[in-house]
Computed example of a mutant assay.
Amino acid sequence: MLDLGYGEGTNTRLLKKGAAADVLGVDISHEMIRLAEDAEKAEPLGCRYRVADVADLSLEESFDLVVGAFLLNHASKRVDLVDFCAAIARALKPGGRFVGLNLNMAIEPEHYDDCRKYGRWQTTTAERKEGDMISVFHRNPDGSEMRLDNYYLSPETYAAAAAEAGLRDFAWIPLTVSSEGRDAFPSGYWDDFFKTPQVVGMEARK
């Protein structure tokens, strides 16, 4: 499995603890990869890491599964999105699968504040258009806030970019809450999230 652009390797390690015989994690940040390697030293699992820009990534090996959590929403232009998707296609074995998480590009800006009770909200321009920035805010348990800047491209642009890059059967996958997640909160707690879910899954095949 190949884990693209998830920083300090949290997902990489989860994949290795799951069903993956071998996992490579890639991120553009030297500091994030250092943190991932520190975690590997503290608890060796056999994860491998590499510093690289995913947009022009070309590896000597290929993978059954490529994972990209909040990777594609860093593309601000269609050409950049095609580059990301092409890198994914290059890394996959024939018939291999890509899965990821992404900002839900089908949600209109008037709903960007609907999930504030979960400690998460978004802002964008008044007249959102292709390439506009979407700022995502997270409230930490200590009350501090973190901001991550991403970009809007339409769902149609995503599907077209995936096809152009050689990925087939591109689809958006609605999220669900596990039984443990439902049991941990009062009845109806997740209802507001699923009215206008701001995060969505995605998948495609080579």
Rank of each mutant, 00 (worst) to 15 (best):
A171T: 07
L72T: 13
F70Q: 03
G96E: 10
P174K: 03
N150R: 10
M133L: 09
S58E: 12
E110D: 14
D80N: 06
W190D: 09
M105S: 14
L92A: 06
M133W: 01
S187Q: 15
M133N: 05
L59C: 00
T196S: 13
V66I: 12
F185S: 05
A21P: 02
A163P: 09
H111P: 02
E37W: 01
A160E: 12
E40D: 04
I88S: 01
D192R: 13
G9T: 04
R147L: 13
E145V: 04
Y49G: 02
C85N: 06
P197S: 09
S144F: 02
L57G: 04
G119H: 01
F193L: 10
R168H: 12
H30M: 05
E130N: 05
D192E: 15
S76P: 00
Y158W: 13
L148Q: 15
V66H: 11
G25V: 01
R13P: 01
V23S: 07
V82T: 09
V177N: 01
A161F: 04
M202R: 04
M32S: 12
E61A: 13
D22N: 13
A42Y: 02
N102Q: 13
L57K: 07
K195V: 15
D56P: 00
D192H: 09
R182V: 11
L15H: 12
P141H: 02
S179Y: 04
V51Q: 05
H138D: 14
K16N: 07
L14H: 04
T10H: 13
A165L: 10
K77V: 11
Y189V: 02
L92E: 03
A86S: 10
G5Y: 03
D192V: 12
E8I: 08
M32L: 09
L71N: 02
E203S: 15
R168N: 15
A171W: 04
E203P: 00
S62H: 15
A162P: 06
F70S: 02
A126N: 08
D80V: 11
E60G: 14
T123F: 01
E164D: 14
A20N: 05
P109I: 08
G9S: 06
A87H: 04
D114Q: 13
D27Y: 05
G25W: 06
E43T: 12
I134P: 01
A39L: 07
D114Y: 15
K206F: 04
P141W: 00
Y158S: 06
A39Y: 09
D64K: 08
L101K: 07
L103I: 10
G201M: 07
D83P: 00
V26I: 14
N104H: 14
T10Q: 07
M146Q: 15
R78P: 00
C47D: 06
G201S: 03
M32I: 01
P94L: 04
K77G: 00
A20K: 05
A160W: 04
Y151F: 15
L153A: 01
F98L: 13
R120G: 11
L81Y: 03
S154K: 12
V66S: 11
G100D: 09
P94G: 01
F98N: 09
R90V: 00
Y151S: 05
G166K: 07
P44I: 01
P186Y: 10
E130D: 14
V136H: 06
Y112P: 03
